[in-house]
Amino acid sequence: MWRNVMHWRGVALVVAGLVATLVLAMNGGLVLYIHPRYIVFTVVMTLIALALVAASLFARPSHDHDPEPARGLPRLLSVFAIVAAGVIAIAMVGLPAATLTSATAVQRDPSGLSIGKEAQNVDSVSSARSAVFKKFTVVDWASLLRQTSDLSFYDSKPVDVTGFITADPDDPENVFYVSRFVITCCAVDAQPAGVPVYLENWGSSLKADQWVRVTGGFAANPSESSKRPIALHVSTIKPVERPSAPYLY
């Protein structure tokens, strides 16, 4: 039994990985974990792995030269490793695919610390028309907010953004971020970007991690404890479904 476990553990984990990958590829969930540009490569390699797994199941197993089973502490450690890997494998195949939550957004700074000028540049957009601003995502706005807190720049520029709610750690009752994650490779490198919204006692009608579409305009942030000088003042806010591509690139 133990010999069989040790012999087949790798193939079993490959199977878990490829089942999860193929299921996600079919229901469009791969984008929750990796950047779209890797999808073709990932699926091709997964199909090759599938062929190898099939070949290994049909080949006669060559147990005769497997190493002698370990005893004592090494065996305990490998049991632990197999159990831990097994738990992840089961979660991978069994649990519904999920996006990162506001917990990670808070942990990585929801204001979008790493979003720089490459998204939008203050000088080049200052005279753009309203229609342009209406299409701006939270990443575009986070980029501008990092560059200037001059209120006249934001005057009469319409904001219409969609994202999930992350409470502002400094004033969680009255300020939240409409946030998205930006990913370059996979969910591991996700960087949060968010637009601060001032809405007194928002927790009474909304909750963290909920997806919303918010319209309004930027003005001074009335919150006393929030560190952000400017916040979005809401005209309309309505709950929406999580988009099929929740991350931005």
């Binding site: 791969l30 390699m45 991978m92 999920a98 996006t99 996979c186």
Partner: peptide, 25 residues
């Protein structure tokens, strides 16, 4: 699941799905 547990799983699974094709290669 609680947010932290969910994110732990999402991050770990993301590392595996991203690395698996390279490991196979």
């Amino acid at each position: 699941l609680p947010n932290q547990v969910q994110d732990l799983l999402t991050l770990s699974i993301s590392v595996i799905i991203e690395s698996l094709p390279f490991v196979i290669l």
